[in-house]
C-alpha cells in the first residue's frame, strides 16, 4: 500500500461488492419466482434487473424474489415498492422491460403505466 488513493480504490470496489449486506432505504423490487413465473421466464427478468441495478450502481435499491403471488396469467410479475411504501405491480415483464422499470420507475420515479397489472386487467 503506497498511498491513500490505492486504499480508497479497493475500499470503493469492495463496498460495492458487499452492497447486498448494507441496510437500505430505497426502492424495493420483488420478482415473483413461483413455478409459473419461472416457466414464463422470471429468472431472466430477475437477472436482467439485478444486472441493471448493478450497472447503474443503485446501492440503495433492494432486489429480492418471492413465491407465487397468484397472478399466473400475467407472469413474470414484478413488484416495485417505492420509498413511501406504495406498491406497484407489473405484469408480463421481459428482460428488456424489466430494465425499463429500473430506469424509469426506480431511477426516475416515472411509473411505467402501460405495464401495470391493472392495465392488463382492463
Amino acid at each position: 500500500m503506497k498511498s491513500l488513493a490505492e486504499l480508497e480504490k479497493i475500499r470503493n470496489e469492495e463496498k460495492k461488492k458487499m452492497n447486498l449486506r448494507d441496510i437500505k432505504h430505497g426502492y424495493q423490487i420483488v420478482v415473483g419466482m413461483g413455478t409459473c413465473g419461472i416457466n414464463a421466464g422470471a429468472r431472466d427478468v430477475l437477472m436482467a434487473i439485478v444486472d441493471e441495478v448493478d450497472k447503474k450502481d443503485l446501492r440503495d435499491v433492494t432486489v429480492t424474489i418471492s413465491g407465487c403471488i397468484g397472478e399466473c396469467e400475467y407472469e413474470p410479475v414484478v413488484k416495485v415498492i417505492d420509498t413511501k411504501g406504495k406498491e406497484f405491480i407489473y405484469g408480463k415483464v421481459t428482460a428488456e422491460t424489466g430494465k425499463k422499470i429500473v430506469d424509469e420507475h426506480v431511477m426516475n420515479n416515472k411509473v411505467v403505466q402501460d405495464m401495470l397489472l391493472e392495465k392488463y386487467k382492463g
Binding site: M1, L4, L7, I10, R11, E13, E14, K15, K17, M18, R21
Partner: peptide, 25 residues
C-alpha cells in the same frame, strides 16, 4: 458476522486501515 475474516479486501471495504492511513498521513 458481517465479513469474511480471511479476506483483507472485505475489511478494507468496511473502512479497514482507513484510520491508519489518516493517522500516518
Amino acid at each position: 458476522g458481517m465479513i469474511n475474516p480471511f479476506d483483507i479486501k472485505e475489511a478494507i471495504g468496511h473502512d479497514g486501515y482507513k484510520a491508519l492511513g489518516k493517522v500516518l498521513t
